[in-house]
Simulated assay, not measured.
Amino acid sequence: MRIFLPGLLLLANSAAVSACPEGSETLISCTFKDGVRTLTTCLQGEQATYVFGRPGRQPELEMKRDVRDVDMTPWPGIGGSIWEEAIFSNGNVRYIVYYSLSKDPGARFPMEAGVIVEQNGEELAHLRCDAGSVDSGYPLPLFDAKVAAGQVYSLETGQWE
């Protein structure tokens, strides 16, 4: 059974929350609250997916988007960490999935990540990934996929054109 909402595809018979499917690349994935919930974002060709929920169960939220419809903020090349964001939208709700890699060689957990949920610009939730559970890194393959799809990132405006 499939339920279509504007820009959102929910698969009622979809696979349980897990790692990215074979043939796809991980964007940012991790666990929350000692593994109680999992976030997996993947890239396969021109499709990016966002899957959130309890491991081994049906996803609580699953989105599949064309890479042109997933916003991305690439690392600007400065600062004490390397970071990027992938932004999945569902109506007026944005899911800002991010990672940050500390340049400090002494950092105990140099990789941090999470998801910020916003509605109409107001933060509804900020979930931080469990330490040591983050699978990601610079550069996200989403940047190259967006370029391959004909988009250009403007450093001046911070927007994809």
Rank of each mutant, 00 (worst) to 15 (best):
P105M: 05
T40K: 04
L27W: 09
V36I: 12
E118L: 14
Y99N: 00
G35D: 10
V115D: 05
C30N: 00
S89P: 07
D34F: 08
R94L: 13
S81P: 06
V36Y: 12
I82N: 04
E60D: 15
Y99I: 01
T40I: 03
A113E: 01
L9G: 05
N90K: 13
E84A: 07
E123Y: 10
C20L: 03
D69R: 11
S29F: 09
L27A: 07
A86L: 08
V134G: 01
G45S: 02
S102D: 06
L127Y: 09
E46R: 14
R128T: 15
T31D: 07
A19F: 07
N120G: 15
M111K: 11
A16D: 11
L127M: 13
L10H: 13
W83R: 11
R65N: 05
P55F: 06
I96V: 15
G45F: 10
P110Y: 03
A125Y: 08
M63E: 04
I82C: 08
I82L: 09
V115T: 07
A125I: 11
G106H: 12
L39T: 04
A19T: 07
P110C: 07
G121T: 09
V17A: 02
A131P: 12
A107D: 00
V51R: 08
V17P: 01
D66P: 06
D69M: 08
R94S: 15
Y50A: 08
I82A: 04
R68Q: 14
D135P: 04
T49E: 07
E46L: 07
C42L: 01
E60P: 00
E62F: 14
R65P: 03
L101D: 10
P74T: 02
I116V: 15
L39F: 08
G7N: 02
C42I: 00
V97M: 01
E112H: 15
K64F: 14
E122Q: 15
E123R: 15
C129L: 09
I78P: 06
I78F: 14
P76R: 11
M111W: 06
A16Q: 12
A86I: 09
D135T: 12
P110K: 02
T73S: 11
W75F: 03
G53F: 05
R128H: 10
G121R: 10
S136C: 02
R65L: 01
R57G: 09
P6D: 07
G35F: 08
A113R: 00
G79T: 06
D34M: 10
L124Q: 08
V17E: 01
N92E: 13
T73M: 11
G121E: 12
V117Y: 13
I28P: 09
A86R: 03
C20R: 02
V93H: 01
G121W: 11
E118K: 09
M72D: 09
G56N: 08
S24M: 04
R108K: 15
I78A: 14
E22M: 12
T41Q: 01
S100R: 05
P59M: 10
